[in-house]
């Protein structure tokens, strides 16, 4: 899958900030949103935070695994999110507040699968 990365205006999604309660969010650039197309490698439904691992392939064919941090499995579980929400191998688009230093990670905002189903905040 070819890499697709779009920088969005952060105001589009600031109305519903993801909750990361366990630590500071200082590593995330919450003034910037990026959107990528990729494939789910793994959804770690673990404490203290869940992690969506997404493999993104660039135009040269190089693969990069992104680590996208989300809320606690407990709070997400009460909102209907399950370990099966992101099946490995699924193609999707994801939006994230990226790491400030440009490393392949970020704070998860939302995702849309190829069939149009969305998870999280996708407005």
């Amino acid at each position: 899958m070819k890499r697709l990365m779009i920088v969005l205006a952060a105001g589009l999604v600031l109305s519903s900030l993801p909750v990361v309660a366990h630590h500071s969010n200082a590593m995330f650039d919450q003034d910037r949103v990026i959107e990528m197309s990729g494939t789910v490698k793994e959804f770690q439904f673990t404490n203290p935070h869940t992690w969506l691992q997404v493999v993104v392939t660039d135009a040269a064919g190089r693969e990069t695994e992104w680590s996208l941090e989300w809320g606690s499995p407990n709070n997400l579980g009460r909102q209907g999110i399950r370990p099966s929400t992101f099946p490995p191998g699924s193609a999707l688009k994801v939006r994230t507040y990226p790491m400030k230093d440009g490393s392949p990670g970020g704070l998860f905002i939302g995702a849309m699968f190829n069939d149009g189903k969305t998870v999280g905040n996708w407005e």
Binding site: Q44, N47, Q53, E65, G105
Partner: peptide
């Protein structure tokens, strides 16, 4: 109410010298 186990998969270690919160891969 569910279990909260902070060290179960804590991928945000904190530098004891600077206080900065890092992120790790899997």
């Amino acid at each position: 109410v569910y279990d909260y186990a902070c060290n179960e998969n804590n991928r945000n270690p904190i530098d004891p010298n600077t206080g900065w919160t890092y992120t790790t891969d899997t």
